[in-house]
Design a protein around this nucleic acid. Sequence first.
DNA 1: CGACCATGTGAACACTGTAAACATGGGGAG
DNA 2: CTCCCCATGTTTACAGTGTTCACATGGTCG
Lengths: 232, 232
Amino acid sequence: MNNDNIPRKAAYHHGNLRAALIKAALVEIAAEGPEQFSLRGVARRAGVSAPAVYRHFASKDDLLAAVAGECAERMGHAIGDAIAAAPPDDPLEQFRATGIAIVQFAVAHPAHFRAMNVPGMYDRLPPEQRAAQDEFVRQQQAALAKAQHDGYVAKIPLDEVMLAANSAVMGLAHAIIEGRLGPVDAARATKLATDVTHVLGVGLVPRPETITDPRTKAVTPKAKKGRYTADH
Amino acid sequence: MNNDNIPRKAAYHHGNLRAALIKAALVEIAAEGPEQFSLRGVARRAGVSAPAVYRHFASKDDLLAAVAGECAERMGHAIGDAIAAAPPDDPLEQFRATGIAIVQFAVAHPAHFRAMNVPGMYDRLPPEQRAAQDEFVRQQQAALAKAQHDGYVAKIPLDEVMLAANSAVMGLAHAIIEGRLGPVDAARATKLATDVTHVLGVGLVPRPETITDPRTKAVTPKAKKGRYTADH
DNA sequence: CGACCATGTGAACACTGTAAACATGGGGAG
DNA sequence: CTCCCCATGTTTACAGTGTTCACATGGTCG
């Protein structure tokens, strides 16, 4: 994101420490995991003494928030690429691609993924990166809205679908990197993500007016213009 | 699980330290969160000096695994209760209830929930509690299988449905306790879980042979005895 | 009763995050 | 060009951590 030959604020003793620290933190966090992550370790890695970090970050948590922001940005790019690579005339497939991209990113960079999925991290994200993340969500939502408008998706409220889909994807990513599914390589991760989004997708395809309903309890989309009845 | 008046191994200096330590760790972890969790802190809380912990646990991680096991056991009980409270003749609703129970547990005890959802924790779980967790999964799967057999659930492979449903529930729980959905109280958590399981449920209800399909790309359940085609 | 061994303690080590005082050197004012 | 200032980095220090070792204690069993 920043070339060293363009010192935005100033070129100081180190060159551009803040950026170097974030970069060092990224490799430290990838090597040790976000829990073993040590401020002194990244300082060592950057060839600098520990308190120097405090000239650029208020605390260890602040540094962590910065790297989380960087991670969010990278994942955002991966997602953007996935959208771009999906069929441009198929918004549902675009939406689905975002989910698969997230799982792939998580399995490729588990530590980075976990670094940004930490309680309260979203609120602590640097505003710029948070905006980027919001922008991605907006894109995702737009694709889904278009898919729904084009008739690919049942008329369930958008935010509910978004929540369910994102929850499923995030949950799958967590399950994988927590090792609950055993060792999972990139190929298998893609397979699992495909399966999960497939199950979701089955639910999202609009259904005809009458459906086979063994009992009257379950979903009955007859009366109210396509809005299914919940049972609570 | 263990009454103090039944000292299984022996009654020693403290009474039953191991159990007391786990209990102390549970309140410590609930108060400080699983990252700030401090071995010395729980030792203090138990009125004992730090190295005493090492007579009962090999390391801090080992202690954490024990509390995670305790948490898993508690959540397992909550899930069991939820299944018992669901309509006994409605396996799909039972399955759904497990998901809602998980989200409710997560929002009620976020720190405990996070303590057991940590990379590699499942493998480190005490065998007994891991067995308990496996047993819960088995129950869940049985309910789902029965639901499918009874015609409530489309003929998607069971493990895929399990994965999708559990991913969605876990993802929702994570999203809530990470604060990405803003402040969420118990009532709202239940609402969200209901919504998500509802979206999923819509997908799980069997659909007739022919469906409204705007293009030929999407799901087309015609030929292969109910197995939908994936697109990769 | 007496010895043993499981259980708990105190001191110590390497490490961590963080604060305060001090050193340094590049860039702008004169 | 010179000089001073202030942003940047260092040294030292402190409290707290996980963990180990040598030692104290006391219940249990021969």
